[in-house]
Design a protein around this nucleic acid. Structure first.
Length: 771
DNA sequence: GATCGAACCGTCCCC
DNA sequence: CGGTTCGATC
């Protein structure tokens, strides 16, 4: 332990050994944040200030929680099992499983993921006869989650106009539906835990007494409700209360769009009377030029807590910048540079290609593929989100809880068993009338439909009976067969991959059982009979809590389903192999690579056009750029394309404003940096010509390079070029962002100073060039 | 109830 | 452009 402490730098050391009072650690990118957090816990425990059971640590991802757990078990001689370490949602789930009575949930309640929630909302909108044009399901979902994240129940939402009154009504009905089904969405886990703590003094006192130290990672990403939850749990600032150790970086707050409130850091300092503010500014990751770029860029943000990273690693290579005439040329250039890096001995996996939006990956993917370079794209569907897996999970959920209408509707007719939309409508009407779950409304129906439905219920009941004594993996395998899912996908032409995924689900169940230390028995009752319940209580997964009143534990099935919802699984099958890493900037947060390419650095893409109209939008984009830059250890490449194919049309983009915010001396332009020339309309190129275009990989530093010189603007009938200032009679002054088409078809995208960005048909709109 | 085509839509995606 | 979704059709 003392050896661990001695390896820390003075600031880290100070943070780790702070007295038991509320503290805020401003930890810059690459400053050893995770290390400080885990060493703090280890220090607290090994100095006898707290027992493992008195520790609560919150992370943002399961991955981070696992990593922390792994590091701790390496650092501490004792078991880490008594600690509560997990995500907000994981911890709240654990809490609710223990206090399900107070929560008004069945102990086996299941968790709705984003897809399930949306499906539920769609179903509800139909039942309520709400026009989906007027209230698109996605927006309703956004509204409900937004309200919950502010801690607002339907009655608390202020509804002035008709539109929002209806939204509140939908919210109310949605809640009723979830309660009836015995399910909770992600936000609900938090809100309900919060309410129990708020309304139940005995429970509140119990947890306050238990958790002496609360540690929070990625504090800048907490939302309002999470903050309130922490506040409630920590309690008053006296002997009763816990002490909070918050670690965060306001400059890396990139999740405002989903409710994160970086202002929580200010509030925290004030409301928790934080006496210890420590900045970790020494960066152990990046070379000087890279760090200078990050620092200079982020200095353009107004509202910052203030922090400047420094390194002792030396300036290193300059940041290489390349402006390509097209997206295709950008990809080609990237391939050349990647090859050079590989020649220098870098492993593929130390090279990352980052982009602002997933749509930008395709061109680069194609180029990498053609070049025969191995790559791995992150993002997309994750394992437990795949349709076939969700079908299987729906059957499993029905075994656990027949009232789960979401699961019921998902598989009642899949594989097809002659239960049509008409029948289901009748069933839903009947269920609504009698206020019962769908499964209990079946006998209200008559006719052929009722018989088929009854057959389905019998099937599920039979599966439940047959699997009662099975181990979890056997149970899953049995359900795959008995439900007809396997047969269905065996028949299907494209079903091979899906079958494999279902087989993988059995493996996942087996792995889960091993990891969580579940025995081979399937039911809680059996587990209790065998006296194994206490093992589950200590499980690190934080899912199977014991009911304090009855000692009843969750069945492995319920625990597994919870696991599936809270941890959607990896989204990639072929991991492990040495490949170039491709991902969005968001996905790259927390990762680091020797070499990083940030691509598509164009106005409208990065910063994204949608962000420009939002309050603080550009600042968040800048933080995003800051995150991207600080991923790189040794090499950083920035690139953009003057023309880009996006959404089926060619866009002509300006160079990102962020280039003007980087220190010129840290950059090395591989293409000419000549705004007058580089920003021209490149429509005179035809695609084939660009295809043959090759970037010189040993480029001239800074200055003008004739070989990459883009020709002057072609003569166009309208005489406009990108970047041109124009005047419009109605909209006033603006700048041409892009041009497309020719003759009568010609259109210009113009950003007006006062009226936003518009597309104008040039044969109609009168645009006068200015200046 | 499967299948095909028209229509739509398109930041980031943790839990 | 490319995917997903929805409605019309056999």
């Amino acid at each position: 332990m003392s050896a661990l402490i001695q390896q820390l730098n003075p600031e880290q050391h100070a943070a780790v050994t702070l007295p038991a009072e509320n503290a805020l650690i401003l930890a810059g990118a690459g400053s050893g944040k995770t290390r400080v957090l885990t060493t703090r816990i280890a220090w607290l425990i090994s100095t006898g200030q707290v027992s493992p059971a008195g520790i609560l640590a919150v992370t943002f991802t399961n991955k981070a929680a696992k990593e922390m757990m792994a590091r701790l078990s390496a650092q501490l001689p004792i078991s880490v099992r008594g600690m509560w370490i997990g995500t907000f949602h994981g911890l709240c789930n654990r809490f609710l499983r223990a206090h399900w009575r107070e929560a008004g949930l069945p102990q086996t309640f299941q968790i709705l993921d984003v897809q399930d929630q949306l499906a539920n909302i769609k179903r509800l909108l139909k039942a309520l006869n709400v026009d989906e044009q007027r209230h698109p399901p996605k927006q309703v979902q956004w509204f409900i989650n937004g309200a919950k994240e502010q801690g607002l129940r339907p009655g608390d939402v202020e509804a002035r106009d008709q539109q929002s009154r209806q939204l509140v009504e939908i919210y109310l009905a949605y809640e009723a539906q979830c309660t009836r089904d015995g399910v909770a969405d992600f936000a609900e886990l938090l809100l309900r835990s919060y309410e129990i703590l708020r309304d139940n003094p005995a429970i509140r006192a119990h947890y306050r007494q238990r958790f002496r130290h609360i540690l929070v990672d990625e504090f800048q990403d907490t939302n309002r409700l999470q903050y309130q939850w922490l506040k409630l749990l920590a309690g008053p600032e006296d002997a009763q209360g816990a002490c909070v150790f918050a670690v965060g970086d306001d400059d890396q707050s990139i999740y405002a769009f989903r409710g994160a409130h970086a202002g929580n850091m200010d509030d925290y300092q004030r409301e928790f009377h934080v006496r210890h503010l420590i900045k970790l500014e020494r960066n152990y990751r990046s070379h000087g030029h890279i760090l200078d770029s990050a620092n200079t860029l982020i200095a353009n943000n107004a509202r910052r807590l203030g922090k400047n990273l420094r390194t002792e690693a030396g300036a290193g290579e300059p940041v290489r910048v390349f402006e390509a005439p097209s997206d295709y040329a950008e990809a080609q250039w990237l391939i050349d540079e990647v090859r050079q890096l590989l020649r220098e001995g870098l492993p593929h996996s130390e090279i990352a290609v980052l982009y602002r939006a997933n749509a930008l990956s395709r061109v680069i993917e194609g180029a990498l593929f053609n070049a025969g370079l191995p790559y791995r794209v992150y993002g997309g569907l994750r394992f437990f989100e795949r349709a076939e897996v969700k079908h299987a999970l729906a059957y499993l959920r029905l075994l656990d809880n027949p009232q789960d209408d979401t699961a019921f509707l998902r598989v009642v007719n899949f594989p097809a068993r002659g239960i049509g939309a008409r029948t289901l409508e009748q069933l839903q009407d009947a269920a609504r009338l009698r206020a019962t779950p769908l499964s209990e409304a079946v006998d209200a129906l008559g006719g052929r439909g009722a018989a088929s439905l009854q057959a389905f219920l019998d099937l599920v009941a039979q599966m439940r009976f047959q699997t009662a004594a099975m181990s979890l993996p056997d149970l899953v395998r049995h359900v795959l067969e008995a439900s007809g899912l396997n047969a269905h996908y065996r028949e299907e032409r494209e079903g091979q991959e899906r079958l494999e995924n279902l087989e993988e689900l059995v493996n996942a169940a087996a792995a889960f059982v091993t990891q969580e230390g579940f025995g081979l028995n399937a039911t809680a009752q059996q587990r209790q009979a065998l006296g194994t319940a206490s093992d589950a209580a200590d499980s690190p997964a934080a899912i199977e809590a014991i009911d304090p009143a009855t000692g009843e534990t969750l069945s492995p099935l319920t625990a597994f389903l919870t696991h599936a919802a809270l941890e959607a699984g990896d989204n990639q099958a072929q991991n492990g192999q040495d490949a170039i890493q491709m991902m969005t900037v968001h996905a790259a947060k927390g990762l680091e690579f020797d070499a990083v390419f940030i691509t598509g650095l164009e106005e409208g893409l990065f910063p994204h056009e949608n962000a420009l109209s939002e309050a603080d939008g550009v600042e968040e984009e800048r933080r995003l750029m800051y995150v991207a830059i600080t991923r790189a250890r040794k090499r950083l490449y920035l690139s953009l394309a003057q023309t880009r194919m996006l959404h089926g049309q060619t866009r002509y983009n300006l160079r990102s404003r962020f280039f003007d915010e980087l220190p010129p001396q840290a950059l090395k332009w591989l293409s000419a940096k000549q705004p007058g020339f580089s920003q021209v309309l490149a429509s005179s190129f035809d695609r084939d010509e660009q295809r043959g275009w090759n970037a010189p990989s040993k480029a001239v530093s800074g200055g003008f390079d004739p070989s990459t010189f883009t020709p002057p603007p072609p003569k166009t009938s309208h005489g406009l070029r990108v970047g041109q200032g124009v005047f419009h009679n109605k909209f006033g002054e603006g700048v041409v962002l892009s041009l497309e088409g020719s003759g009568d078809e010609a259109r210009a995208q113009v950003r007006f100073n006062r009226h936003g960005t518009k597309w104008l048909a040039l044969n109609i709109a009168k645009l006068t060039p200015v200046n």
